[in-house]
Design a binder for these strands. Structure first.
Lengths: 229, 229
DNA sequence: TCAAAAGTGTTGCTGGTACACCCATGT
DNA sequence: ACATGGGTGTACCAGCAACACTTTTGA
């Protein structure tokens, strides 16, 4: 009890909704709490903001500490400040969402190490605090933003097939897309690099691999190009 | 100095970017600071969050206290938490933006009472703290959101002409729109109520007045309708 | 040879854009 | 009568949606 202030202060935390794509599911990463309140319940990874770090830094640090994840796409979502969202005292949280590529196996291993687990977004246990609400908003934001910003690529490995991107959009937008129209559209944007490689270890015709061309995307954007699915 | 905690805590504030439309300009409301730091500089209205109020409540309270504004459209923008954004100590701010209807003359009067003033967004003095950056983000958000959510009406009086809406969009989007196409589009959405009234006190043919039909908009939205200019 | 997914074009329709003149009203 | 903005329709074009079959590959 060494830090005193003239007026009472809320505690400040960050929480992260981490999305990953695993086979046919959009998943999120949860941590099982080992302390009250909500002991044993699942919660979003997160923790207190330190005085010497920015909000973004706090979110990245907590992610790394609690889940081992690094180099993820991270974006601020919203700040939640209901008076009684934490039963102990007033806590305001700045929520973030992150997109990670699950097919990178090191990521999987890193998260296995702790009391963290992946859950399909449409099969989530009830969460601690107001984390259900945070998750809901993050999911909505992802569904919205994925359509007009090329953030979907963050959920895929660096080299991917057209089928994989289409599948990603189908899972996130929760509706089927026409194969030919989808290919026509995404290729016509000119933001994919067609590689001289095909996928391996598949029991059928191997599909061509592509890469997202970030430089070209930025260049086009400056010229008024607008990504949209 | 009566409130002590085990770990140091950042102070938490809210700040509001208040937009209004006045003739040919999109304007924002600023407060002149009468205390250091940045004494005499212009800043966004805002202040400390109290423990017994939510973030939204804090923003509404500060707006009311500092500018007299009530019943405004308010939406959370982003939280700013750079370590040294306030030279005194660590302060994290949750920024909001508000849209007000300036033609309501009581609003004008209320804001005249204090050291507050309206500035055209493209002629803003340099602001205290990181408020330039907050303003920039709010402006961007407004430009983006006005196109796919019917928030523009918040800047107009309850009864308005088609010319006024079009002008609003031209000012915010900063480009001219075709009169016939604009009218066709906005009327075809079916979210305007055509009144049996026309504007008064104009030195030419009076234009018909319309009202935004919130109920109908909500109904249509539930049926999958998507507003877009 | 079978199973599985890759890859590929055309047509119709919808909705956006471009564009100019007459009308109503107040001064 | 004139100045000012109100109000209106059409033609073209681009881009979206719907739709099915052949090819490649590994098992």
């Amino acid at each position: 009890m060494k830090y005193s202030y003239e007026y009472p202060r809320a505690a400040l935390t960050v929480d992260c909704v981490v999305f990953g794509l695993y086979e046919d599911d959009l998943q999120i990463l949860l941590i099982q709490r080992d302390l009250p309140p909500f002991e044993g319940d699942w919660a979003l990874p997160g923790g207190f903001v330190r005085l010497e770090e920015t909000l973004d830094e706090a979110a990245l640090r907590e992610l790394s500490e609690e889940t081992g994840l690094k180099n993820v796409y991270l974006e601020q979502l919203y700040s939640f400040g209901t008076v009684n969202r934490d039963p102990r005292e007033r806590v305001v949280t700045v929520a973030y969402y992150a997109l990670v590529n699950l097919s990178d196996h090191r990521v999987q291993a890193a998260t296995d190490a702790r009391n963290a687990a992946w859950f399909a977004v449409d099969d989530i246990p009830s969460l601690a605090f107001d984390h259900d609400q945070i998750l809901e908003m993050a999911h909505e934001r992802l569904r919205g933003k994925v359509r007009y910003q090329p953030i979907g690529f963050e959920l895929l490995p660096p080299k991917f097939t057209l089928r994989q991107i289409q599948h990603l959009y189908e899972v996130i937008l929760d509706r089927p897309l026409d194969k030919r129209n989808f290919r026509k559209k995404i290729l016509s944007m000119g933001i994919l690099i067609e590689l001289d490689e095909v996928e391996t270890d598949v029991a059928h015709r191997a599909a061509r691999l592509y890469q997202f061309d970030r430089r070209k995307y930025k260049r086009l954007t400056k010229q008024g190009f607008h990504f949209e699915i």
